[in-house]
């Protein structure tokens, strides 16, 4: 029930790379100089993405949080508070692909158990929060992702894979393992959250409606 806050292998140092620096400049422009602490969340994301880019594990080590605190002139503990509050910030190392299964009621009703099971089977992970032996996948249980119309959802890093089921999940993981990232979005024949197989209403065009007159 306790947060295990300190993984053994914290890196000794962290510095933002050129790509991140360019992003930081843009972010800081949005806030007045004396309110720059507001940029803490964007900067945490930038740090997390940089870690993902550089090390293959998108997480925020302690030194990165300290560096953010230094830049934003805030107490380090305030950064730790923010980073630990949001589940989207990983304060522990994770696998290359972060599989986030939504198990809240709508997804669960639509078969998120099958998605979870498929994830387990395909990655060899036993429990939520674990990272697979090959270091490629971390499986996390998340609360409602806000895409219930397309339930069940499997979020991989920042992308939503929608309308999943067991076999599709296994196929997706196989793709990821092979280094391919399939296009995000509905896995079935529909556009966004429109009905399966195309539109069901408002089929009349303005031309056909004028014909009827």
């Amino acid at each position: 029930m306790n947060t295990t806050w300190a993984p053994a292998e914290q890196p000794d140092n962290f510095a933002f790379d050129a790509e991140s620096e360019a992003e930081i400049v843009n972010v800081l422009k949005k806030y007045p100089e004396e309110r720059k602490a507001s940029a803490v969340m964007p900067l945490l994301y930038i740090a997390q993405r940089q870690m993902g880019r550089v090390t293959g594990s998108a997480w925020i080590p302690l030194v990165a949080m300290d560096e953010i605190a230094r830049r934003l002139e805030m107490a380090p503990i305030r950064v730790y508070e923010v980073a630990s509050f949001y589940t989207m910030f990983n304060t522990k190392p994770i696998g290359r692909y972060h599989l986030q299964v939504c198990t809240t009621t709508p997804c669960w009703l639509r078969g998120s158990d099958a998605v979870t099971e498929a994830c387990r089977k395909a990655t060899g992970i036993h429990h939520f929060g674990e990272t697979s032996a090959d270091g490629l996948f971390t499986l996390t249980e998340v609360e409602c992702l806000g895409a219930c119309a397309n339930a069940p959802i499997l979020q991989v890093d920042d992308d939503y894979y929608e309308d999943m089921d067991g076999p599709r999940t296994e196929a997706l993981i196989a793709d990821l393992r092979a280094g391919r990232r399939p296009e995000a979005g509905p896995a079935i024949n529909r556009m966004c959250s429109a009905p399966e197989g195309g539109r069901k209403t408002l089929l009349e065009t303005s031309a056909s409606s004028s014909d009827q007159k």
Binding site: M1, N2, T3, W5, A6, L62, A75, P76, I77, R78, Y80, E81, S84, F85
Partner: peptide, 17 residues
Amino acid sequence: ELGMVSRGENAEITTYV
């Protein structure tokens, strides 16, 4: 130096480091 980290059931007062 003190803060409340994590959330909900896991929230706790700590220095974190």
